[in-house]
Design a protein around this nucleic acid. Sequence first.
DNA 1: TGTACATCAGTGAACGCGCGTTCACTGATGTAC
DNA 2: TGTACATCAGTGAACGCGCGTTCACTGATGTAC
Lengths: 205, 205
Amino acid sequence: MSPVEPRQRNARGQGGRLSTEIVEATQRLIDDGVDALTLRAIAREAGVAGPSIYDHFANVDAIRDEVRGRCFDELITSLSEASTAADPVTRLQAICSAYVAYGEAYPHRYALLYSFVRTREQNTATGHGGPRALHILVESITGCAAAGRSSSSNPYDDAVAVWACIHGLTTLRASRPDFSQIQSDETLRDIVHRQARIVDLQPRR
Amino acid sequence: MSPVEPRQRNARGQGGRLSTEIVEATQRLIDDGVDALTLRAIAREAGVAGPSIYDHFANVDAIRDEVRGRCFDELITSLSEASTAADPVTRLQAICSAYVAYGEAYPHRYALLYSFVRTREQNTATGHGGPRALHILVESITGCAAAGRSSSSNPYDDAVAVWACIHGLTTLRASRPDFSQIQSDETLRDIVHRQARIVDLQPRR
DNA sequence: TGTACATCAGTGAACGCGCGTTCACTGATGTAC
DNA sequence: TGTACATCAGTGAACGCGCGTTCACTGATGTAC
């Protein structure tokens, strides 16, 4: 549990590095699904004494917010990297697959993104991940419509619908891992196609 | 916080009533969004000494499971009661509205329904709410298809899709209360119509 | 080149608190004789 | 009708624990002279 050899303290002038180590330690605890994220548990995981946290963060919520922001960045990066295919429908599909895959790979990080937000400051501080993800979807659906592959007359509205639906599928996959229908790629495909009003070139079946 | 006059103990033979009072107290705490649901907090809310809980429940998880089961029953009842309209599309829409409305009225109860399940026993003990809700959707979509109002060739698959999507909309509404697009009835209507493959008699607009 | 001092990056002990859990108990109410 | 006893529905005190937070401290490393 605790590291065998004691942590080597950062060199003079490198004190800020502990800040990153604290955030990474917290992310590990979140990934492990710990129920109670405490300051002392974070300090233990980072290999540091409890009070050392205070030089870098005011409290656990501040650390959690930092992790949340990182996770949003990760997710957005993942969506951008998936957005490479030339065919607009393939691209939309890849973006949505990447979205769901992130939630599947890191269910606790994903849950953190959409956890109840206590204060308005937290909301405005880290709440931009949703709109950024949404923007990628809007662009993608706009591309499908421009290519005549979607009958969407309002890509923004349809992107919101796609977002809500793949969010639902992602969280259901986490809470019902035994429900094969929900885990199926086919289900994801159908949901996205319908909400994005994709016009199939050749109807399936 | 604590009741003014001390709780009157149950009459002889009525000891089991405290069990219900404990569950109700826990539900109040959950509705209030308390972060840490502790045995002592539940006892305080129920107006009872901490150890008194042990006569009725082994631990907090057992109480939470009981609350979870009740909430599933509530939700299913609410869906059934909404399922009255003669027109099958109106009926499906009413069921989905009731679903989302439950999550809106009791966001913390709804979150409890879909929270991570620790043990398989808990899952099988209270996990039947999902399938029951799903069954109502399957029947409703089947009704739409039979009336020629849905082009669904597989009501079960489409019901799963509808379920995942309205689940996503419900949780997004809770975590993004300021996002008006998500709160809109129009968005809910569009999502359900598309996933249930509803054939509009007269195209909108 | 020495040396005194300042600063940096943390540590260890201590505090008061709420927690889960145990244990012997209490007082009201029913029941056997 | 009395009375001793059993049972029921809890209670209060106590325990050991982990928590957040404070405070004075430590020891390594840079810097001024």
